[in-house]
Amino acid sequence: MRIQPDGINLLDTVIKVLRDEVLPSLAAEQQYSVRMAINAIGIARRQLVRGDAGEAQEQALLAELLGTGGSHAELSWLLAQRIRDGRAKDNPALRKLLWQLTLQRVAESAPRYLQQENLSLL
């Protein structure tokens, strides 16, 4: 078993150090890099928390709706193709899946958007 605190705990702690100790000690023009670092660590942390289970679930949904197998990447290509061919417009299940896939990407990359726009993951 891995020793505790685990990676997620360490990333949380690094974010706290950067935000509470490093940032206030820097002049305004030097804060930008640290803010970017905090943002990047946050994205990595959220991906780590979600793990691979979410993508596996998406892959299963994609396979079911598209009626074929393949990796997440391959099925995403197929979905993109179906959309370009105009075959998603009148398909409520595909539309819903597109919304869910996109929502999930935002939850990892820019959760602040969901808060600002009062959107929830479910």
Binding site: A40, K96, W99, T102, V106, Y113
Partner: peptide, 21 residues
């Protein structure tokens, strides 16, 4: 990090074009 702006743009585009949840 600029690449990670793409998802919120995507979601915003979906909302602007009538595709929402």
């Amino acid at each position: 990090l600029t690449a990670h702006i793409v998802p919120e743009l995507e979601l915003h585009i979906l909302r602007m074009t009538g595709l929402e949840g």
